[in-house]
Simulated assay, not measured.
Amino acid sequence: MTAGNGLSIALLASNRHPIKQPFAGGLEAHVWHLARALQARGHRVTLFAADGSDVRAADSALRVQAFSPSAAAAADSSMQPRQFLADHHAYLTVMTDLSAIGPTSFDVIHNHSLHYLPVAMAPALGVPMLTTLHTPPTPWLESALAVSKGLGSAFVAVSKHTAHAWRHAVRPVGVVPNGIDLRAWPSGAGGPDLVWFGRLTPEKGTHLAIAAARRAGRRLHLAGPVSDARYFRDAIEPELDDNTRYYGHLDQAALADLVGSCAAALVTPLWDEPYGLVVAEALACGTPVVAFERGGIPEIVGPDCGRLVAAGDVDALAAGAAEAATLSRADARDRAVAACGITAMVDAYLQHYRQLVTVPGYGEYHRGAA
């Protein structure tokens, strides 16, 4: 444990993706910023994430353990897909290790993974755990809650929308909105064009942003990792031209420059986005947002900094882009400063950590319908 007032904190992230720039997604960016902010406040951070993570993001690491079944086991009819087995083994190993070393090594464990085993095995840890719910309910996590009865972990969600979505399975669920380092997303001068950034995958609706930009008569800049190669090949790549440009997977500084140079950002989720990190990042750059009204996004976007339109409505998205381009960039930045800064997020998490450490039973919850 850490001496003085500092805490020793284990952060559990994805075993598939390293915590480094350019980030594979919003969850990886979130954990990286949280880890560095906790370190800056004098806490010791140990990180569980894929090999290749930024060594500066933590004081030490819990290694992801690989597993290869024997030829006989792989040929068995019960053999699962190799990625499923790799995930299962990685989390089974780290949770078993934490149950052995946790009480003498850590004050608190903060679970950001989307895997079921950390929740299912939380009662065996001997050290309090906080689980952040980054997604809508999944069958695997609901199963883990049914097994563990929710004991061993407290729960927070990244938005009120996400907390409400989980009310049937776990409560109470606190709300700690994601926060970004506002210094890393400086306000830009803007310009006439539109921008879309994030993971290029069908549920993010990149193809609808392309259609809306064309209807609005504006050039569109795209940036982000290709998470679905077939989607990119079939739906995005054929649409690329001088007015629809793809810049690849940019590092954070280059992405901030691109976002800050545009009139408005299009946000087009085809699912209920739990929070909407790209919304916060665009607003911090002073770039108003035009977004489908889904998930946690309406908790961030108001009429002073953007426009919300019906999900899937390309015409409304195009019209909203024209309106958003006339909004005050200073007001957009002010909204990010007021609602999306990392300082408030870290303060809230530290409050939860200290309650877990000092208040017996804080991590338990009562099951039942609302």
Rank of each mutant, 00 (worst) to 15 (best):
I109K: 10
D107L: 09
L130H: 03
N111V: 11
T131K: 00
T131I: 03
A124S: 14
L133H: 08
S113D: 12
D107V: 11
Y116I: 00
A122N: 05
T131H: 05
P128A: 11
H134I: 02
L130K: 02
H112L: 09
G126T: 10
G126Y: 08
T135R: 01
H112S: 13
H134N: 15
T138N: 01
V127R: 04
T131D: 01
D107H: 15
A122L: 12
P136L: 12
H134V: 03
P123T: 07
Y116N: 00
L130P: 03
T131V: 06
M129R: 06
H110Q: 12
P128D: 09
G126N: 07
M121E: 14
A124F: 15
F106Y: 15
P136Y: 00
P137G: 01
V119P: 00
G126P: 04
L125F: 03
P118T: 05
I109M: 11
H112A: 08
L114I: 13
Y116H: 14
T132H: 09
D107G: 12
A124H: 14
T131L: 02
G126W: 09
A124L: 14
V127C: 06
H115L: 10
L117T: 07
D107C: 09
T132I: 12
N111R: 07
L114T: 13
L130S: 04
L125C: 08
P137W: 01
L117S: 01
G126Q: 04
T138F: 00
T135E: 08
H112E: 10
P118F: 09
H115E: 15
A122C: 07
V108E: 08
D107Y: 14
I109E: 12
L130F: 05
A120T: 01
L125T: 01
G126S: 06
S113C: 11
P123Y: 10
T138D: 00
M129S: 15
L133Y: 08
G126K: 10
H115G: 03
T135K: 00
G126D: 09
G126H: 07
A120I: 02
A120C: 03
D107T: 07
A124M: 14
T135M: 05
A120N: 05
N111Y: 04
L125H: 02
P128G: 05
